[in-house]
Design a protein around this nucleic acid. Sequence first.
RNA 1: CGGGGCGUAGUGUAACGGUAGCAUUCAUGCUUUGGGAGCAUGCGGUCCGAGUUCAAAUCUCGGCGCCCCGACCA
Length: 576
Amino acid sequence: MKMTKLFPRTRYGEVGATTAAHALLLKAGFIKQLAVGSYILLPLGFRVWQNVQRIVWDEMEEKGVQNLQVPIMQPKELWVKSGRWQKYQDAKTMFQTTERHSGAVFGLAPTAEEPLTWLAGESQLSHKDLPLSWHQIGWKFRDEKRPRHGLLRCREFDMSDGYSFDKDEVGMRTSFEMFREIYRCIFHKVGLRDCIYVQADSGAIGGKGSAEFMALSDEGGEDTLLTCSDCSYGANVDKAGSIVPEATRPADTSVALHLEYTPTARTVEELTGLFPGVDATRMVKTIIFTVDGELGEEKWYQVAVCIRGDLEVNEVKLLNALGAQSVSPAEPSVVRAVTGADVGFAGPIGLENVREILFDRSVEGLSNFLCGGNKSGYHYLDVVPGRDFTAPSRFYDLHRAVSGHTCPECKCSLLRESRGIEVGHIFMLQTGYSLSMGAMYRGEDGQAHPLWMGCYGIGTTRLVQAIAEQNRDEKGLIWPESVAPYLVEIVPLKYDDTHQQPLADALYAGLKARGTSVLLDDRAVSAGVKFKDADLIGCPWRVTIGRRAPESIVELWNRRTGEMVEMTIQEVLKKV
RNA sequence: CGGGGCGUAGUGUAACGGUAGCAUUCAUGCUUUGGGAGCAUGCGGUCCGAGUUCAAAUCUCGGCGCCCCGACCA
């Protein structure tokens, strides 16, 4: 490609972007926003994306996963059958369209479990056909409430999605591990420099075991991860367990329950100011949540969560514990109606107007603690479970793990938090989809058995920006060779110079003949402009043709290391 | 979907209710060419609709668009 023909030009001024890579992709002309959450992949961005896709297709093919392609428009009936239609309607996640003549309704693919489970079910599979795994790359549509950060969260995005079918749980786990390994290879090959594997929550996809691949990035990372500083434990904060610091012990456990007048203290922080002898680990927060428990019609109810004062509630864990559709902290008016007190004074003693009080594990064994009095302006002190209110029969893991808690795996080292971009997510689906959709295989015993499934996703457009996030400097992008839009950029400083042009053209032709992707800056602009643009676009190698052109000497420059070596174009052809 | 903010030229910005200006990009010409060069000339704009007013970029209402915080996710 010649720079005079390359669309578009790079941009000079500021661009409205939220992350460094997003800004660079805009400035260098890789992407252009068309509407909220939808981007045009411009020629340079398109090439990177294609390179990523090619690596994914090839890796799948090589590991025995069969590539295919599924329609974007998926019949509503399939989704009704799996039970996800209503779920996605309620969450307002799925775009849909209607066929105008027949009135048939279609959902625009947010994933493709339904058509592929259908295909598996239609195929009269025998145990001899298993394990079986399929993969496609295609556009996905999700009506994201707030698209942002360029390619990182779009309403329309490209995703690689794989599906595995096995005859039993052991097989499913084997397939899961196979995809995990494929993913590890893919993320390595595309040039992610810092990609970790963490346990995750399954969300709307369902199933039991799920794990994510996270490209670490402080700036672009939307997810918070907790990793052990010692062992291999890592988890999304939604999922992460942790061992919380020990509570301080009360001086005297025989003290009777008493009510304290605390009109100015609603939060844990304010209470620690008021009662210096009682730290946050000896307080119990009671938070009222409004829960939507049903699919379809909204059926709201309230629950209370009691948790130690130094901890926060993890709403994803709460959602899973309740098996509900959504939870959110109750409105102040609801809190007043339920507790009879203003926000900040709820407690487990005499709290009756909630469907359930859930106790976090952190409260287990806690005694002589402080909690709200369910009366505006009052807190109880020296509360003893069993004595002052019915002792909980069950404790849940509902707290949010944070940096400094102890690792739940090795139980000795501390967890630390980091930020990551979710580039891949793999799920063990069990038999949920195959049972609801009737996808069975014929076993050795001659009977029909449900297929054990797994599904696996990589955000390929997202991955383009994740790679950029991890491969850049203050001057611009630094593409890994495997995905670079062009491997080499030739920069003749004066293209119309009688020595430079023949060298530039010969090298250009030589590289092209060899099948190496190459960009030639044939513009009549100053050297500074060419260097700035080359740095910005970020091809891994730059060949500068300048003052030593009369001797047929050019410079080979490495964008990442900044290393420069003078050589002939024949030597360049050998080196890159 | 809840909360907040902003819409002036391709981009970034300025203008008390009274002449829409500046920078940059772009086009043309000349001089330049080892790190976003200089001069000259030129093109190009108040998101849409209604209202208030002698007069609206400016005030009011509605719409649309975009951005930010939250929940949801590849």
